[in-house]
Nucleic acid binder design. Sequence first.
DNA 1: AACCTGTCCAACCGCCAACCA
DNA 2: GTGGTTGGCGGTTGGACAGGT
Length: 331
Amino acid sequence: MGRSPSSVENGLKKGPWTPEEDQKLVQYIQENGHGSWRALPKHAGLNRCGKSCRLRWTNYLRPDIKRGKFSQEEEQTILHLHSILGNKWSAIATNLPGRTDNEIKNFWNTHLKKKLIQMGFDPMTHRPRTDFFATLPQLIALANLRELVDGHPWDDHAAARLQAEAVRAARLQYFQYLLQSAAAMASNSNTNSLSTITTSDMDPTGLLSPLQVLSFASDVPTTSPIESIGGQSQISQLPDLHIPCSSFDVQPIMSSDTIQGSNFGFLSQGDPSGTPRTPLISPHSSLPPLTDLSAGNPGDACSTSSCGGTGSPLSFWPELLLDDPFMTEFA
DNA sequence: AACCTGTCCAACCGCCAACCA
DNA sequence: GTGGTTGGCGGTTGGACAGGT
């Protein structure tokens, strides 16, 4: 499995390994060590490149490899280390005996990443997702695409609908933030199960990490916090959070002829030279881009929460947050 | 039963840093 | 200092498989 049927390139075989090849490789390394990987295939009688042999050995044939499902403990270790190290799979693997970087990488991409997203966390920063405006362009793109396909002009009604969707999405994100804050406050006041989390465990911003949320909500590990509160499973049951709509001064572009290039030029206003484009947010808005919260380099350890935040999240959205009775209570 | 769709994961690719002549 | 080689890493691919229609 995995790759195309074995092919021969430069006389060297590629593709899945046969049991015979595995046996040759294992036997040779057990008797001689791998030595120079480049020279190994020749000495072992394998029609493979050295790189392929090394990968096969390190990812599959090594005797100390632990196979099977990842335990809860391993999962939490990966989460924790990823929040510190980012996608440094080999570094993470050194802390998980018997697991290979490839295995951890696959596990992350197929399980943990989705889990974090479902919980409302950004898988790269391990912080609550704040990419509302990152998804807004997709909505706009879809709407424009629809227009192109259907031949229906984008009228004010459609724009208003989109804006309403945007506000609703913002409310969701905002509510998730409130949940995080509430959890943090509760842990401080020792009023519920969150009391086991100490302030020293916390992100400097006061937010809980996915690991912490997973820890206390392990009975609903794949459920969004929004869905797990008070048995309410419907988004429509969210409280009205009174997010000021004027804060989202979104200006949809009406004409489809603004579509340009592969970057969907109609999504943003920017010069065609490739300089960073300006999101379609009114310049007179006092709000910083939400994406600022997660703008760190995914591979950069210091961009993660464990290396310190940029202050209280309240400071990011003063107008938005302090306008709400919820926040005045928390602030 | 046949087809479709999504998931899993072994294997490949390209890049980069370390090493050596 | 330079260029070639090697090993290692992270991202991506695509066939096998499972579950759904």
